[in-house]
């Protein structure tokens, strides 16, 4: 019943020309039609945050946007964090602070944290706690995620 639309998704600086059914979520288009499977899908209704990506630098739930809505927008996913062999400060901090166990929620947490630390490099511990409450993790108990993001915040500030 619905016609496919031709769109261009710019994911981590690379253009993907795809023909999408309007009902496909951005998460599904990124994973199934652009081959970028680092973005994970948990609940598919906006609660868990595993699918968080940056759209024009803002962290959003990619399960609550349709792919067709992201035409010509700048999308960043977990695959874009490392620079070649060099991990992003957040990725390093997650490893050093044991901020992941099964790792399923990690791409969402990394993109959420990337978005907030870029927008507010001086964010306070309390504000950070509130932002990190956006996503769910069933392994870590959150304490190590909070520790890692604080460490990355401090390192990114020192480096800038």
């Amino acid at each position: 019943m619905s016609d496919k639309k031709d769109i261009t998704l710019t994911i981590n600086g690379r253009d993907h020309n795809v023909s999408v059914d309007p009902r496909w979520t951005l998460a599904d288009v990124i994973r199934d039609h652009c081959g970028q499977t680092g973005t994970h899908l948990g609940c598919e209704h906006g609660i868990c945050g595993a699918c968080t990506v940056l759209v024009d630098d803002a962290p959003v739930r990619s399960c609550l946007m349709f792919g067709v809505q992201a035409d010509s927008k700048k999308i960043r996913t977990v695959e874009g964090l490392a620079k070649g062999e060099e991990y992003h400060p957040l990725q390093k901090a997650f490893m050093e602070n044991h901020a992941l166990q099964c790792g399923y929620c990690t791409p969402g947490f990394l993109m959420l944290a990337t978005g907030i630390l870029e927008a507010q490099p001086d964010i306070s511990d309390d504000e950070l706690n509130d932002v990190l409450s956006s996503n769910l993790c069933r392994c870590t108990g959150y304490a190590n995620i909070v520790k890692a993001v604080r460490a990355a915040r401090d390192e990114m500030k020192a480096a800038s």
Binding site: M1, S2, D3, P22, R23, T25, C43, E44, V68
Partner: peptide, 11 residues
């Protein structure tokens, strides 16, 4: 957990 099909309009 996938939305049903619909026609999309972008005025």
């Amino acid at each position: 957990m996938k939305p049903a099909a619909f026609e999309y309009h972008a005025p």
